[in-house]
Amino acid sequence: MNAADPQAKIQALRRQLQSLLDAAKANERKLDRFDALERRLIAVESLEELVKLLLVECRAEFGLDAAELWLLDPDGELQRALPGLPMAPAPQLLAHHGPLRALFGTARTTRLIAPGHDEALLAAAFGAGARMRSAALLPLVRQGLLIGSLHFGSSDAGRYDASSGTKFLDRLAAIAAIAIESMLNRERLRRAGMTDGLTGVHNRRYFDHRSLIEFSQAVRHRYPLACLFLDIDHFKAINDGHGHPVGDEVLRQVGGMILRSLRTGDLAARYGGEEFVVLLPRTDLAGAREVAERIRLMVQAAPFVTPEGGTLSATLSAGLAMLPAGAASFAELLGAADRALYEAKRQGRNRTVAGGAPVS
């Protein structure tokens, strides 16, 4: 036996041991990074912060070439909860389960995609032009339901392959899904505190807060701001003649008509009783008149369905005012719209009055 053989074996064992130690240290560092990420996910304060953490900071922390987040949003709940949309990067909000089923089928486990396998899935997950060579697709599951997916992509063909473990990725997906659900529940509670429970429009408290912001923005950036006061005509007679449940149903349906008439960024609130207020940022007088008349005519034409299945008619009066140049406070705009509404009532109701002049 050659005397060098034992020495060679010892060197080989040392190299093997060092390799194992290096792998252990790498796994320890990976575990530390994942642990820190999980702690941050649990502590996020908003959906925007959560999206940034998953799509920007994860990509930088783990040396990824791409990160995508798909979230199921059939009712537009996430769209409302992310007022900054379009944001960069933005999650992809899905109206139905189809895209998620295309990625995962009936499985609820992480999928690793290596070169030469499932190329169509790579294109679907990142876009045809992304040119990712390997990827991890993480399903986001809560209470047995697939609510979205998180995609990590790499131009390194060896980054993700079938032999790679998915323990860390599975745990990350579970924590991310919990964080998303937590943020949605928090958003639901927040919205409940600023929404009128009967009509679905914002409540007076939220309007008082938001109106000051809109006023400040309009003054600073010198864009027009319109205010509408809307009041259901002879509402007391509806309550007295048909009962308060019918009156509530009329209010609910009018609230829905108002919301359907507005753009993203407009604000509608129930101001009190049968009175609604609408703010239209970046809208001139002609545009504001068009909105007011659209709402008024919708109410005039609607057969209001009562809880018993019957129908009745109602009308609405509208007062319109534009933010005056040099206004010192939002109260000036609100007061002008209120006076215009009073004038509409005085002239016979079921009309829009802007600055004391009826809309023809």
Rank of each mutant, 00 (worst) to 15 (best):
M194W: 08
L212D: 00
H221D: 13
V201W: 03
H221R: 05
R205S: 07
H202W: 13
Y223W: 15
A218M: 09
P224T: 03
G197N: 13
M194T: 12
R222A: 13
R210S: 14
S216H: 04
V201F: 03
E214F: 04
H209Y: 10
R205W: 07
D208S: 06
I213D: 06
G193V: 01
V219P: 00
I213E: 12
A218C: 04
S216G: 11
M194F: 14
Y223L: 09
L198I: 07
R210L: 13
G200M: 11
N203R: 08
F207P: 01
L198P: 01
Y206G: 15
G193K: 00
N203M: 13
R205T: 11
V219Q: 01
L198M: 06
R204H: 15
M194D: 01
R222C: 13
V219M: 05
Q217W: 02
A218L: 02
G197L: 04
E214C: 07
T199N: 09
H221G: 04
M194S: 05
G193N: 00
H209W: 08
T195N: 09
H202K: 07
V201Y: 09
D196N: 09
L198Q: 15
R210G: 11
G197W: 05
T199M: 14
S216I: 05
L212W: 00
T199R: 06
Y223P: 03
G193P: 00
L198K: 06
V219W: 04
G200I: 05
L198V: 05
R222L: 14
I213L: 08
Y206E: 12
H209M: 12
Q217N: 13
L212M: 06
D208L: 11
V219D: 03
F215E: 01
Y206H: 15
R210I: 15
G197C: 04
G200V: 11
R204V: 12
D196W: 09
P224S: 04
H202C: 12
R204A: 14
D208T: 06
G200P: 02
G200C: 10
A218P: 03
T195H: 05
T199W: 11
T199E: 07
R210C: 12
H209I: 12
T195K: 09
V201S: 03
E214R: 01
G200K: 02
F207V: 04
R222K: 15
D208N: 12
F215N: 02
R210H: 12
R204W: 13
N203K: 14
P224R: 01
R220A: 11
